[in-house]
Every structure is written in structure tokens, then in C-alpha cells.
């Protein structure tokens, strides 16, 4: 996003808001991972503790979800940069 027409006071205000939203965003990703990995990995309710198989699945699932999010973020960011460039050259 382009905040070039924001004055310093407005930019400081936005920075605080963005920091708060980053926190909320992180917590939301946390819950999304828990939900998705639980739903995919846990299907045996004959035990109360996670089986070693479930535990390994949750670990891989979490790691892959993060790497997936990072890759989506990288591509998304490239696309936005292209759009910005195109706008600046026109």
C-alpha cells in the first residue's frame, strides 16, 4: 500500500494500527493451523493422548502450512510490486 500522501502523524497512527493487526493476523494463522492440522491428522478417538503417528502428522502439517503461507506471500508480494511498477511507468 502507498502511504506517500500521509503526513507524519497519520503515518505514526497507521504504524500502530498495523502492528496491532499483525498480532491479530499471527493469532489467526495460529488458530487456522491448529484447526486444519487437527482435522486432518486426528481421527482416532480410542485414546486421549496424541499417538506418535498423529504427532508426526501435526508437526509436518504445521511446518508445511507455514512454508505454504510464506510461498503464497512471496508470490503475492511480487504481483503487487509488478502492479506498482506498471502504475508508476504510466
Amino acid at each position: 500500500m502507498d502511504f506517500s500522501n500521509f503526513n507524519p502523524a497519520e503515518q505514526a497512527h497507521m504504524t500502530k494500527i498495523i502492528e496491532k493487526k499483525q498480532m491479530q493476523d499471527f493469532l489467526k494463522m495460529y488458530s487456522n493451523i491448529v484447526e486444519k492440522c487437527f482435522n486432518t491428522c486426528c481421527n482416532d478417538f480410542t485414546t486421549k493422548a496424541l499417538t506418535s503417528k498423529e504427532e508426526a502428522c501435526v508437526t509436518h502439517c504445521t511446518e508445511k502450512f507455514i512454508k505454504h503461507s510464506e510461498r503464497v506471500g512471496a508470490r503475492f508480494s511480487e504481483m503487487n510490486a509488478e502492479v506498482m511498477n506498471a502504475q508508476n511507468q504510466s
Binding site: 486432518t40 508426526a56 502428522c57 508437526t59 509436518h60 502439517c61 511446518e63 508445511k64 512454508k67 510461498r71
Partner: peptide, 9 residues
């Protein structure tokens, strides 16, 4: 894939 046998894409 939902097999989750490894850590990497």
C-alpha cells in the same frame, strides 16, 4: 497433499 510425510513442499 494431506499425507504429511515430510516437512517441505
Amino acid at each position: 497433499s494431506t499425507r504429511y510425510a515430510e516437512d517441505d513442499l
